[in-house]
Every structure is written in C-alpha cells, then in structure tokens.
C-alpha cells in the first residue's frame, strides 16, 4: 500500500473510531445522570477522552477543509453526555482559538483582508450575539433539531457548492469601491500577481446576518458559510476568502462566546482539553495535508457530519 493509501486508511479508521468510542462512552456514562459514581468513568478520564477525540477531529478538520467547531458541536453533543448548552459554549471557544491561532499569520501574509473583514464582521458579530441569545432562550430540543437540520444542510452545501479560484469580477460595485475593499496577492504556486476586487457587497452583507445568527445559535463557527458567500457571491479569490473567513471567525465567535461565557455555559474541564486536542490535531493535519488525499478525507468528513446531523435530529425529536 502506498504512503498516501496508508494515511487515508489511518484517517478512515480514526473517523470510525470517533463514533465507536463515543458510543462506548455514552453506554458507560448512562448512569452518571442518576448516580454519578457507579459504572461511570472517573472524572479524569473525560479530559483524556475529549483530548483524543478532538485531536482526531483537528486532523480531520484540516484535511476535510472545515473548521473545528463544525465537527465539534454535532459530534460531541450527539454522542457524549454533555448538555448542548456546554457543548455550544465549548464549540465556540474551540472555533475561536483556531481562528486566533491562524489569524495573525494570515493577516501578515496579506491573505486575510482587514478591509474586507471589518464591514462583514460588524454585521456577523452583531447578529451572532442575537443568535446566541436566541439559542440560549429556545428549548434545547428545538435547538437540537435545528442543529441537526443545519448540519445536514452543510453536508449538502459541501457536496454541491463549487469553488472559483479567482472569480470574474468585471467591475467593483459602488459600496465596495467606497469602502476601498480590494487588494493584491501573489499566488505562491505560480508567482502570478492577482488584483482582486469584489461585487454584490450589499447582498453579501445581508447574508452575513443569517450566518451570524447561525454561528451564535449553534456555536458552530461559520467558515462553511463564510467562504461560499465571500468567494462565489462577492467574488473574492478563493485564498482570500478562506483566509478572511478564518480571521473573521475570530471576531464573530468572540461576540457569541462572550454571551455563552456570561450565561455560565463554559466548563473549563470540557473546554481546555478540547481546545488543546483540536489545536494539536490541526498541527498534525497540516503536516498530513502534504501527503494525504484531501478528496478522500473530505468524503469521510461529509459522511461523519451527515451521521452526526442525523443523530442530532433524532435526539432532538426524541427518537
């Protein structure tokens, strides 16, 4: 078997270990709700389990081209005994940490554009506060059902959405011209210098209202929605869209994270190992990216999200 094949196999096995582990965890911890001692793991097992599972998620997130938050919330809420309130709080902090870690480098490389991010962030961060408040006010089952439906929608989006390396933007629109949202970057693989500008700015900003609400409501992060809007609708080059989206999460998730923190939805015992696991997994994922076949892993990620989405849906419906 080739090295790439082995890596794909490892990723595949890891992915199937996540639900298997999670199922065994759930089975072992069922008595915790009523008892708390008999038949449950000792407390120190939980950070270790979270560390391992989120490490695998971190690897998969990089290889699958998704953010950590979008994997974390449906999988952890679907297969672990933690209440959705705490999973969303932890999910936002996980997504926020990933964005904070990536943001400075992307800004310095001029791949993330502050001029593009700031107007978008104003809208998205405001509405992620609204989303967080709605999410915390709604009954858990309703949020769980909506989360399941959203995750399944993300699967469809991942299956159908196209990408455009450098979209054709004949002329910048008035709003983006007034805001001076344009830039230049050099494509490292070809050395080509690419001038970019955007259009349909107003429509894009309107869509960020919905993206902000969903990010706050479900604690998912929102890279899955940011990139298509920035790239396909507003016409920013793919690299600029991906980098700006990642940086944007550091702002959007900050506002929603504060709502969850201030409402008591953060338990450090859950947050810290998850955050470390995802970050370590991301480091390994970046190294594997050079040799792995992202296409294969992407399919596995879509499969996992579909599975987790169905689980969230059935859990919310009480099936």
């Amino acid at each position: 078997m080739s090295k790439q094949g082995k890596l794909a196999l490892i990723a595949f096995v890891c992915f199937f270990l996540v639900p298997v582990m999670a199922h065994s965890v759930m089975a072992a911890t069922a008595p915790v709700v009523t008892d708390g001692t008999d038949g449950s793991y000792p407390w120190w097992m939980w950070p270790l389990i979270l560390l391992v599972v989120t490490f695998v998620m971190g690897v998969a997130a990089v290889l699958g081209g998704v953010g950590g938050g979008v994997l974390f919330v449906p999988i952890i809420s679907g297969f672990f005994p933690f209440h959705l309130d705490f999973v969303r709080g932890a999910g936002l902090l996980v997504a926020l940490s990933g964005a904070l870690a990536a943001g400075p480098g992307l800004l310095k490389l001029n791949l993330a554009s502050l001029r593009l991010a700031v107007p978008v962030a104003l809208i998205a961060s405001t509405f992620s506060i609204v989303g967080a408040m709605i999410g915390l006010a709604l009954p858990t089952q309703v949020v769980q059902i909506a989360l399941g439906a959203t995750i399944l929608g993300i699967c469809v989006l991942m299956l159908t959405a196209k990408k455009s390396e450098v979209p054709d933007v004949p002329t910048a629109d008035r709003l983006s011209s007034a805001l001076r949202i344009y830039g230049v970057y050099q494509e490292a693989s070809t050395g080509q210098v690419i001038d970019w500008k955007i259009h349909r700015t107003a429509q894009g900003l309107v869509l960020f209202i919905a993206i902000g609400i969903m990010a706050g409501m479900f604690g998912l992060g929102a890279g899955w929605a940011n990139v298509p809007v920035l790239n396909l609708l507003m016409g920013a080059p793919l690299k600029i869209s991906v980098a700006t989206s990642k940086f944007l999460l550091s702002i959007t998730d900050t506002s929603a994270a504060w709502i969850y923190v201030n409402n008591g939805c953060v338990i450090p015992m859950m947050v810290v190992p998850s955050l470390i696991g995802i970050m370590l997994g991301s480091f390994v994922g970046v190294r594997l990216l050079r040799v792995a076949k992202p296409g294969v892993v992407r399919w596995i990620v879509i499969g996992m999200l579909g599975f987790a989405g169905m689980k969230a849906l059935t859990k919310g419906l009480g099936l």
Binding site: R115, S125, I129, A132, L136, S255, W258, I259, N262
Partner: peptide, 27 residues
C-alpha cells in the same frame, strides 16, 4: 476615518457582548 469609526463600533459591539448586560434568558 470611516474605518476608524467601524473599528470603534466593532469594539463597542464586542464590549457590549463581554459586559454581561445581554442575557440569553436560559431555559
């Protein structure tokens, strides 16, 4: 100056979220 105002506004929005004034209501 426009982006300076945007920056200040963003800091205020995030500051409002951080202040603890806004409550999720609980369920």
């Amino acid at each position: 100056k426009l982006y300076a105002c945007f920056g200040l506004l963003e800091a205020l929005i995030l500051g409002l979220a951080a202040s603890g004034i806004l409550s999720g209501g609980g369920h």
